[in-house]
Computed example of a mutant assay.
Amino acid sequence: MDTTVRIALQKKGRLLDDSLALLKESDIKFNIGNGRLVAQSTAFPIEALFLRDDDIPQTVHEGVADIGIVGENEYLEKGYDLDVVKRLGFSKCRLSLAIPKSDHYTGVGWFDGKKVATSYPEILKKFFAKEKINAEIHEIAGSVEIAPGIGLADAIFDIVSSGSTLVANSLKEVAVVMNSEAVLVANKNLDDEKREILDQMLFRFQAVQSSDSNKYILLNAPNDKVKDIVAILPGMKSPTVLPLAEAGWSSVHSVISEKKFWEVIDQLKANGAQGILIIPIEKMIL
């Protein structure tokens, strides 16, 4: 019987959209429709389960799913012993403490003796214990941001992305407890065949994400400037230099990090580079 890896994914929301986008770019596609909770990939030995995000850590821990993509916040809150295989770099947010906008914040000691509403009591307990804060934690399943306004709590501890929800409820963010992003987690008891499939998937993820953070660059340079320009473009190993039909000129090809894009472009122009072309990379195999 062929081995299939089962992956748990959030059944809706931004994390699902980001996860499916990465899988699709890695040529791992699912036939999804009509509220299906299970879907098989047509070109890769993997099956998807679509679950509530807070059910994913337990599902992977118990072996119902072999791996899962989940928010780091949910993984830490549930506390199951899983392998964090890869930080995925998307669906980023932060877990923060927020208080009414009209209150004067004096530091983390402000929370001593206060009641704080949250959907993440375990993470908050650890934070308060570390800071030696004695606060009452009130667990709420949803709509945490309304708790101060209806007199249920003095403050909240919740996910913050843009901060617009806080503003809409007359709250202000006063302390970031942790930053979170999507992580790929795995059951610690995967057999060798399933680990091999997981490794193949990770290889594809790496190729996609490396291409997202790098650009292919082509430029023309006078031969007496090639050495200086090559020093600016380290590339994956070293830039490729090819002679042009016009005497005294060469074409230089390389890969640059998107983070250093403008810095590198300015240096190239200052060293005589012309006809600079920047091309997206579809996949990048390191």
Results as ranks from 00 to 15, higher is better:
T3P: 00
R6F: 11
I7D: 00
Q10V: 15
Q10R: 08
K11R: 08
L15S: 01
L22E: 02
L23A: 02
I28Y: 02
I32F: 03
I32R: 02
G35V: 08
G35K: 01
S41K: 02
S41H: 02
F44Y: 04
F50Y: 06
D53T: 12
D55T: 14
I56S: 08
E62Y: 11
I67F: 06
E74D: 13
E74S: 14
D83P: 04
G89A: 01
S91W: 00
L95V: 11
H104P: 07
Y105V: 13
V108W: 01
K114G: 06
V116Q: 07
A117Y: 04
S119A: 15
K125F: 10
N134E: 14
A135C: 04
H138V: 15
I140R: 07
G142R: 11
I146T: 12
I146W: 02
A147M: 05
D154C: 09
S164R: 11
K172Y: 05
A175V: 14
S180K: 04
S180N: 08
L190S: 04
D192P: 04
I197V: 10
M201W: 00
A207D: 01
V208A: 00
L218R: 05
L219W: 04
P222Y: 01
P222C: 06
P222V: 12
I229S: 00
V230R: 08
A231S: 13
G235F: 02
M236N: 09
P243Y: 06
G248W: 05
S250E: 06
V255R: 00
I256K: 00
E258G: 05
E258A: 12
K260S: 05
K260L: 12
E263R: 08
D266E: 12
G275Y: 08
G275H: 10
I276S: 01
